[in-house]
């Protein structure tokens, strides 16, 4: 069996009447990039706080780097984390803020400037945190998470507020770290942001883990769709009837037929249209995004 960086069993946190996380069971294999996805309020941050020993679970247990979360001092020296957006002292510069954390963790101060360089803040390291733009704050948060040269990096919505090139950079940093053996556990409410870099995914909804496994498994749950557009709109219903009679699952969207079928069925569909005397203006195969698959699996419409 693979070694696990994080493993939760029946991890539960109840606030008043509502469960922020209910019986969470999941594992994050060591050395992987694992996405942690769920809509707002689904319990991502709550789970991450429990994993970092900041809040105590109501019930259940978890281990991080092989140690129980009831003893965070045993694993936190090897963990870097950014939780729920960056929080720093507004009156201190970015550099001073990092130095405070480096001193606290016993890391060499020389790492501070290296990390500012890495997140592209070298020239603004001396400015006060309160003068930073949202993206700069976010990048300082990532730099702080990298201070310990972590074996496990936990990032809660790290791309929040970043522009496309910033998002690209963060992805690059995550990939580089993963290549050097760091396990990365990264949350987002946008699945499409994570599907391309994450080998594993854990999905949350209303405090429940609804998927935990390889991204590949989720991909295999994807049903491709063939989109066919007849030359004349009047032919739409005719063709739809013909295809339904032949056992296809069909919906009409924006003057096109959406047919649940794999690539191989394209020829059949084209031939059937031809036999009915209908010319197709276009026919193409579309893979739904993981997001759509996810919502289909969870029975939620966008």
């Amino acid at each position: 069996m693979e070694k696990t960086a994080i493993s939760a069993s029946d991890l539960t946190k109840i606030y008043g009447e509502r469960a922020a996380l209910s019986h969470g069971n999941f594992v994050v294999p060591e050395g992987s990039i694992c996405g942690f996805v769920g809509p707002n309020g689904s319990g991502k941050t709550t789970t991450i706080r429990m994993l970092l020993g900041l809040i105590a679970p109501t019930s259940g247990t978890a281990t991080v780097l092989g140690e129980s979360i009831s003893h965070p001092e045993k694993y936190l020296p090897h963990v870097g984390a950014m939780i729920e957006g960056p929080a720093f002292y507004p009156a201190l510069s970015g550099r001073e803020n990092l130095k405070v954390l480096a001193e606290l963790g016993g890391f060499p101060l020389s790492r501070v400037d290296q990390l500012l360089e890495k997140v592209d803040l070298a020239d603004r390291g001396g400015s006060k945190f309160k003068t930073y733009s949202l993206g700069m704050k976010q990048r300082l948060g990532i730099a702080a998470a990298l201070l310990p040269n972590p074996k496990l990096l936990i990032l809660d919505e790290p791309t929040n507020g970043l522009d496309p090139s910033g998002i690209q950079e963060v992805r690059g940093i995550i990939k580089d770290l993963a290549d050097s053996g760091t396990t990365v556990f990264v949350s987002s409410h946008i699945l499409s942001e994570l599907e391309m870099i994450c080998e594993y995914l854990i999905m949350l909804r209303e405090g429940r883990v609804i998927f935990s496994g390889r991204t590949q498994e989720l991909l295999s749950g994807q049903k491709p769709i063939i989109v066919a557009k007849p030359e004349y709109d009047v032919d739409l219903t005719n063709l739809a009837k013909k295809l339904t009679d032949s056992g296809f699952n069909i919906s009409i969207v924006d003057g096109s037929l959406h047919i649940e079928a794999a690539q191989e069925a394209s020829a059949t569909i084209n031939r059937m249209a031809f036999e009915t005397g209908i010319t197709l203006a276009s026919i193409s195969v579309v893979l739904p995004t993981l997001e759509e698959t996810f919502f289909e699996m969870t029975g939620d419409s966008k």
């Binding site: 706080r49 970092l52 020993g53 900041l54 965070p72 001092e73 936190l76 963990v79 984390a81 939780i83 729920e84 957006g85 929080a87 720093f88 002292y89 507004p90 954390l101 606290l104 963790g105 702080a144 201070l147 310990p148």
Partner: peptide
């Protein structure tokens, strides 16, 4: 400020 969480991650005691 929310900075306590950073402190506690670096010094859990």
């Amino acid at each position: 400020l929310g900075t306590l969480r950073n402190l506690l991650v670096r010094q859990p005691s």
